[in-house]
Design a protein around this nucleic acid. Sequence first.
RNA 1: GCCACCUUAGCUCAGCGGUAGAGCAACGCUUUUGUAAAGCGUGGGUCCUCGGUUCAAAUCCGAGAGGUGGCUCCA
Length: 589
Amino acid sequence: MKTDKMFNVRHSLSHLLAAAVLEKYPKTKLGIGPVIENGFYYDFEFQEPISEADVKVLEKRVRELAREKLSFSKKIITPIQASNSFKKEPYKKELIAELKKKKASISIFETASGKGKAKKVVFFDLCSGPHVKNTSEINPDGFKLTTLAGAYWRGSEKNKMLTRIYGLAFETKKELDDFVTMQEEAKKRDHKILGPQLDLFTFSDLVGSGLPLWTPRGTLVRMLLDDFVWELREKHGYERVEIPHITKKDLYIKSGHWDKYKDDLFHVRTREGHEFAMKPMNCPHHTQIYARKQWSYRELPQRYANTTMCYRDEQSGELSGLSRVRAFAQDDAHVFCRMDQVREEFLKIWDIIHEFYPKFGFNLNVRLSRHDPKHPEKYLGDSKRWKMAESMLKSIADEKKVNAIDGLGEAAFYGPKLDFLAKDSLGREWQVATIQLDMNMPERFDLSCVNEEGKKEGIVMIHAAVMGSIERFLSILIEHTAGLFPFWLAPVQVMIVPINDVHAEYAKALLSTLKEASIRAELSPANETLGKRVREAELRKIPLTIVIGDKEVSDRTVSIRKHGNKMSEVKSIDAFVEDIVIAVQEKAL
RNA sequence: GCCACCUUAGCUCAGCGGUAGAGCAACGCUUUUGUAAAGCGUGGGUCCUCGGUUCAAAUCCGAGAGGUGGCUCCA
């Protein structure tokens, strides 16, 4: 099997890297060096900092080692031998102690040159394998060391930070090059670069990191997206609500958020010394809209939709473009209903999500995000209630004939979720929409209705976000489309390019015709060459470029160039306008 | 927050101890064009900020801010 072979190759390369490191920096302490997707890494505690240039030297040495036809062999050793062999390796000793505790067998892998009596061990590492038998199985040109990064020992921020060296490894140089090319392609689509380039959003050092500012074009796109979600929600009986962006801390003490997230809130103190917080989510506010009056069961469900900003004090090192910000808009909605209405409400939101995502060319996968019974302290409410809620969500996924991915431990602290994962044009998966069932928060806020028997009955709430956050959704959409939005969403849909000033009048008339039809068009004046103006429209990712010359003026037609297409199509003005108006109505891709 | 690296004109970058340069963009003039870069000219910089070393700092050192890639976190 090819994959197994690559596992062994990657794993063995991580050992060779460690060998090269010890050879050059003998005092280095070894962490671990596992295989990962597309390659491997190894964690080290260097005695002195190393640089990218040092990594290049190490890469060269690893390549030499790979060419030396070194053998890999496994050896089972006793705990005492293990302690002796790794005397100077504190991290290995920690691992050995754990193996001892578990009474697991301890093995090492020796990397050696020569055979029989001439055999010389150049490196050995605590390892259960597997590995290649000989480094001749490794293609020395199929790998490269890529990045230098910090990583906590055993992934805990309480531990020491080690230095991690990442490597890529493939069977052939071509596969490696293709992968690197693919990464470069992804980089070209990076929303952090494309967004400002297409003039959608910007950041300001004075405003602060993680706080995106939206330009007119970007704001237009946000509005169009939000309007689309609203259009879908309205059909299903949602009503809009609005809430302030701060609250007394009492709200979050009651909801349970204070305990769990108080460090992640932006705190606000009034002049009188009262403690407020910027809202990091909307559910607690929305519960108080529901709680304004007594409800008859006949009036349920109550469905509240609200696109609104949330604020979270994220760690500075975590911020990244629009994917992780400190202020973001959620297209949030909460349904307050009785338990026996949950199924139908879930199905409605499911439909909304499945009407929304195909309009961008996304395919969706579904994940059932469950609680982790091993960590009850992470969740509100008892395990029995959780299991019931989870089985309900499972049956909804089953009814939709979807094989949901199992997301153990992925639940929110108040309830299980059905999460939707969108696959983008580069094959990457992103969590986007979510439907969450919450039996805990309504209880905490004592939300109820009066039932058929005239008695007070507790209700449940459903959290339903279609885009999740507009910022995050846009970051995904920009990279998915490389900035070339579907026609209905493009901030500028049509660029009109008259060949020379003689055609200006006709072009202006066309511009106003398009504006009357609510098409977003711009006119490019004839003081640059045609080629340059076409190029600018292409770079701005404008879906349609209309070239107007003598032929078009005399025939009352337009010559239409679709983005990325060299060939143009000629249509009458009326036919053109009709076609694009329909394309907008249908949100055609 | 932690580790590494980065920050020079609007953008992309060169310069790396002797007080700033290119291409593109902008502006002006010329050009009036058939589908991805016309020509000439002009303006534009507290070289991220604050300290330090030095006769001299964009360049070396320290701190801070912002960014990138990881780690941790993510309601």
